[in-house]
Every structure is written in C-alpha cells, then in structure tokens.
Design a protein around this nucleic acid. Sequence first.
DNA 1: TTTTGAGTTGTTCGA
DNA 2: GTCGAACAACTCAAA
Length: 483
Amino acid sequence: MQTTVILFHQNLRVADNAPLARAAECGRVVPLFILDEANGRQPGAASRWWLREALADLQKNLSRLGTSLILRRGEMITVLRNVLQETGAQTVAWQRRYEPALATHDMGIAEALRKGGTEVFLDDGFLLFDPAAVRTGAGNPFRVFTPFARACFAAAAPTKPIAAPKVLRGVASIASETVDGLNLVPRGAAWTKGLADAWDVRESAAQDHVAAFVAEGLPHYASDRDRPDREGTSRLSPYLHFGQISPRQIWHAVQHQKAAGVAAHTAIERYLLELLWREFSWHLLQQYPELAEEALNPVFAHFPWRADQAGMKAWQRGMTGYPIVDAGMRQLWQTGWMHNRVRMVVASFLIKHLLIDWRVGDAWFWDTLVDADLGANAASWQWVAGCGADAAPYFRIFNPILQGQKFDPHGDYVRRYVPELAGLATAYIHAPWLAPVDFLAKAGIALGNTYPKPIVDHSFARKRALAALAECKGYGAPERFSP
DNA sequence: TTTTGAGTTGTTCGA
DNA sequence: GTCGAACAACTCAAA
C-alpha cells in the first residue's frame, strides 16, 4: 500500500483537492503543513490571522475524515525528508505555487526528492489555465486583458471540481506542532477581534458563500459590483487566496447558473471576467517575476515620489479628510478587506494626490488585507499607478468626491466607517469642508478637530500629479516592458 | 510584413 | 443639470 505526503500550501481544503483525492485512492495519507519562514514573501499580519483560522478548520475537516494534519516549521526540504523517513512514505504531492521565488524553490525540491527516489506529483489547482498555454496567435503571452480573456473563454473549459474523499487512511501519529504553537498571531492581539467578527474562515463557509452569491448576488452583480454600500460582490477573495475554495469550484458554480438561466448572461460574464483578472495577474507575474517590486514601465524610475510620513500615516489611519478614502482605509483596518471600487480610490489617492510610491501602499495592503495576494496586488497597484502592463491614460486621476457621490450616493458606506460624520446631510457627506457651518454644528462636527480637513486640495493635487507625470516622461524615450 | 483597430474601472470644461 | 469633446501617445493583437 502506498503512503503519500500531501503538502498543503494555498489549497487548505478537502474538496476539489486532486492530490488529496488521488492519494486517498492509492493508500495512506499524511497531510502536512510546513511553516517555512525563510522562503518567499512572508504573509502579513492579517493573512497570518486568516492562515491560523484556516489551518484550525482544515485540521478539523481532516480528522473528521479519519486522519490528522501534521504541522511543522522549518525549511521545506528538511521537514519533508524527516516526515518521509518517519512515515515511510514514497510519494509527495502538492499544489504548484506561482510566486516566482517559490516556483523556482519548489522545482529544486522536486528534483532533489526525485533523485532520492521519492515520487513527486504536482497539481495545477491554483489557477484555471496553465500560464504556459495561454498564448496569442504569434505564440506570445498576453499583455492586454481583453484578448487574454477572449483566449481563456475560447480555450477548453477548466475541468470539473472533484468531491472530497469520503474517508482517509492515516499513519500512526507522528510529532506535530499545535496550531497555536506556530505563533501565527500574537496572543491576545486586540485587532483580531474585528477580523473575527467580519469573517467565518471555514471551508464550509466558503461553500456557503459561493452558493449564496450565485443564488442572490449574481443576478445583480453587473450593477451592484461597484457599490460599496451594498453587498454586491462575492467576498470570496480570501478563501480563494488560501485555497479554501478553488477557482474551478467558483467557475463551475457560476456556469451552472448560466445553464439554469437564473442570472443574466451579462452578470455571469462580468463575474467570470473578474475571476479572469486574478488569472491574468498571476500569468503576468510569471512573465514578469519582478512585477511586485519594479514598475514595468521604466519611465517610472524617474517619478518624483515624495517621502511623506505624515501623509502616509493619515492615509493608513483613514484621516485624510476625504470621507470615501477614510471609510475605505478604516474598513480595511477593521475587517481586513476593502471593497474593490474603494481600493482603486484609496490607491489612486495615495499615488496621485500624495505622490507616495505605490510600493508603500502595496506594503500596507500586504500587512492588513486578509486576501493579500502577490499576483493580484502587484498587477493592480501597477494598474492604478499607470506603470503596469496596461498603462492608464496619464490624465485618469480619480476625484475622491465624485467617486464617493457616484458609488456611495446616500453616504451609507461613509457613515458606517466614519461615524463622526454620520449626522451630516447627504449633500455634504463626501465633502464636509463645503458644508455650511450650521450643518456641521448640527451634526456635531468640528472640522480639524472631530474630523480632519482635507490634507491636500484636490485640484492642486491633480495639477501636481499631472506635472509629475510630465516630468518623468521627459526623461528620454522609454524602452517599455523589457522583460 | 504591414496595417488596422482597440485598449476595465475617469475628469474637466464649455456649450 | 446634462452632454460631448478633449485630455496623448503608444503598444498590443490579429487580420
């Protein structure tokens, strides 16, 4: 009988887990999670909290199936060799990782294991399509989203998800850390309460989420997805990041609705496109391994970024004086998540209004988002900054007042996360400094005291950003997108 | 090889 | 208040 070590990374689930299902059919299974703090970009604080909860849930789900999750810390190759020896396993399987440094690292480990006579099986479940297979007519990787998405729709559909194994046979127990022994979350950290209130981190919750979204959210998705004051999005991103649900499971749940005719075709297309944005980001990261560190457009090497500690702090704390920006930043801090539309607004504000380097924003998001994801975050920050694969027109600078009025028309979102403005009339909720004094007094607001005045004037900031872009474009002809 | 059409997400200004 | 034009220039993908 064969014994397989199943190494869990970003596939912390028992359903649609091909390596697990395959190992279960072949014999005994040793589920293993290794906390390797030496390789790859280390998860931020919010991600570590989520990881802790997800591991605790996975542990329960695996023991329900008849085996237990082994938790170890240390370098992957060392731990794997120890576990192989302790269990007598002949095979190791894991889901392929796409973070450039880890992909290289993992290939080295697979090779070393194979040389030592261990069979290694790698699964592709993290993405819907193989980055090496999605190509233009000329055989190149795509750099523009729309044709990329068309190619994905034209390709063979992702395979159907597979069911969780009914039962797992384990081995005699071997040493394991406890979940808390991994020290992922500082004991008694107060900030985790908001996260715990906002999220149910179980795999079953991910399944419930997708079912509820497909039935209730999807029909209105095309119109509600941009409204932070509504529950218009699927909120699946953290589950997807940690693999508590697979992109295939989501893809097919949505396609099923199409077949059933429950939701409008446009809503379904719209949602699948969002899944493909995640896909596109990770494919881009394969093409440009430095995507998370360097602007793809080399013109930006000359961008006059400002070192503005006070501005950065105000942004992080949601104290910029622009209500939609502050609401977003506070939602992020309190819940570990921010609505997509608002992410664009706050990112644009940091980059264009404060002229602070997008990497400073990326670092903050990385630490505070429960869905922090290397591919998606890198590609999106570059997109907002206008230095990425699909450069934005330089004059596209989000107006935080207009964005607020357009996408939070009643101010409900602002009132929820910036309660000190709750009493202000809707007409002024997105620009309190324009409110007549008696309106402010009636709402109990003392600008500059109970709520900040804008830290920078919008039209001044807009002109300054345009000038900064003109300046860095003046530095000679760009050699764009050199890989 | 050359050519052509198109490219997530916006804002401002003036009629 | 609403509407259309202007805001640049360039790369990519495909015919």
